[in-house]
Amino acid sequence: MNPFFLRAAGALLLFASCFLFGVSCETRLKRRWMILREFLEFFRYLERETSRRRTPLWEAMELGANRCRTEVREVLLFAAEQVRERKGGEFVRIWETAVFEKLGRDLTGEEAFQAILQSAGALCGSDLVLQRELLSQCADRFALLEEDARKDYRSRGTLFRRLGAAAGIFLILIFL
């Protein structure tokens, strides 16, 4: 085989893998942003539900899940089923199980993951005044997290993609 073609193929593969690595980093940032945005929308939706239509929690979760495209959908559907069937014990336990099984902390980052776990108190409580307050706080907190994640994605996402491409070109230059 012509050594030039061999080098060109190797260079192409190097470039592609570096570029894809950069793109996957960007995608992870985007996914994190989308997850937080969907949680935020769900909390805002539940805020309305608790004060207006008063849909039971399992139904609100199912309706909320229908609007989601990320892992949040799986979390909500899992929790909704446990709540509807009343087989998961206390809500805190149900929520923890759903979040650990269907989401995983590597997708969201530690801070957001803890915020998601702590939101159990806002989703279900026996004190309505406190629950509304917690829901409102939760929505505010997720609004901040979502804003940070969006900024991260906008700034670092493009950077990762460009760095990946640059790294690929750099390696090609070295090998050639």
């Binding site: 004060s51 008063r54 279900c124």
Partner: peptide
């Protein structure tokens, strides 16, 4: 235990029973 019972009684949705409460 009272809180846990309330969760089960209300189907984890105390807010849905606000008027009754």
């Amino acid at each position: 235990e009272v809180r846990e019972t309330l969760e089960y009684l209300s189907g984890y949705s105390m807010y849905a029973f606000e008027d009754e409460v």
